[in-house]
Design a protein around this nucleic acid. Structure first.
Lengths: 192, 192
DNA sequence: AAGTACACTTGCCATATGACAAGAAATGCT
DNA sequence: AGCATTTCTTGTCATATGGCAAGTGTACTT
């Protein structure tokens, strides 16, 4: 059932059946082909996306002009450039479909309206924003204090979809290492 | 002048002289001794702090029980554990005065009230939250893509106060390296 | 002034990761 | 099936950083 998908994403005890009807109506389905861009650096994000199927990544170019994958977005997750969307500034990152994908989008204005009119949605939004900030903090700490092998093992455990669906080079740049090193780490893990 | 300090911190074009009067009245001055704790892991943050003088750091223990300095807070900056303050959850980090310090605090409830009643303050808050998220993202990217020497050089350039006021070991753990390595990096820089 | 604690530096060697290049495997296209 | 492209692996060597221990410097206490 489609409704189950929305209940899963916007999960909050204050949200009722009729709220989900309203939320659902606010969304439009779009499909993306593997490799296509959902948002590019310099453009302004106007929509909030939830992923039904497929895998996306965000990436940018570091000071050495190397592509760095900053995040992965799996099915049943939310994909946005929060700074661009909420601050109406140009995006600092590219967002790309790694596989063919099905997503549901909601316009920024509609999203804001839901936040204002649906209490449970507002509360959901607050919780979600908090978890976003928590993840961002956690990521820096992990990178600083955990070695690449353990970060990779964590990724396997926590987000196996990524391992299955993403080319090794994107995973490597997400972990902050080269694809050569990641290949060796995999070998090491396999033989131990 | 004290007012100048508040105008500097809560800088926003929508805020007027009388707004700053109100903002100022909402704050109370406190002093901290070098080494004393402003907030500890497990406690709930009830206040928002702005630093007039001195240096603070936040830190936690990683999965190896090593102390990791997650952030520094210099004079004219804001110091809070946003997750704890806004979500009423227990703090995930310790906050400690590295030097003797003078800060101004504002109670959470008073802060919320200002957000609701003063439009310029609300707009300032939105901008500030955005810049926080931006910094968090930037930090992960820097750690992933820039080597320790360049991160240290950046720190010297961007936040010289920290270099002057913090012991080397905190700077090292902030950079994600040992104090031994940082000592060598300094030597390397000095002789080149 | 001696003692103590803390901050910083240095030496030695180990380990993790990178750079580059070649080869192998998988995938897509016609 | 055959070719081209991309993805992944492996070898060799270089560099960055860590772990440990000893040594030096500095500041505070008494």
């Amino acid at each position: 059932m489609d409704l189950d998908f929305f209940e899963l994403i916007y999960n909050h005890p204050l949200l009722k059946k009729e709220d989900y009807q309203e939320i659902r109506k606010a969304h439009t389905k779009i499909e993306f082909q593997q490799g296509s861009m959902l948002l590019e650096i310099g453009k302004i994000a106007r929509e909030f996306y939830i992923i039904e199927k497929g895998l996306f990544r965000s990436f940018l170019y570091d000071y050495n002009c190397n592509e760095t994958t900053t995040e992965f977005y799996c099915s049943n997750e939310i994909l946005i450039e929060s700074l661009s969307l909420f601050q109406r500034t140009s995006s600092k990152e590219n967002f790309q479909a790694i596989t063919d994908a099905v997503v549901w989008k909601i316009e920024y204005e509609t999203f804001q309206q839901l936040l204002q009119t649906v209490e449970g949605f507002r509360e959901w939004g607050r919780t979600w924003a908090t978890s976003q900030i928590f993840s961002l903090k956690q990521r820096s700490i992990n990178v600083l204090t955990i070695n690449a092998t353990d970060r990779y093992l964590d990724l396997i455990k926590e987000r196996p979809q990524i391992i299955k669906q993403s080319p090794l080079k994107y995973i490597a740049s997400y972990l902050g290492i080269t694809d050569t090193s990641l290949s060796r780490i995999r070998k090491e893990i396999a033989t131990s």
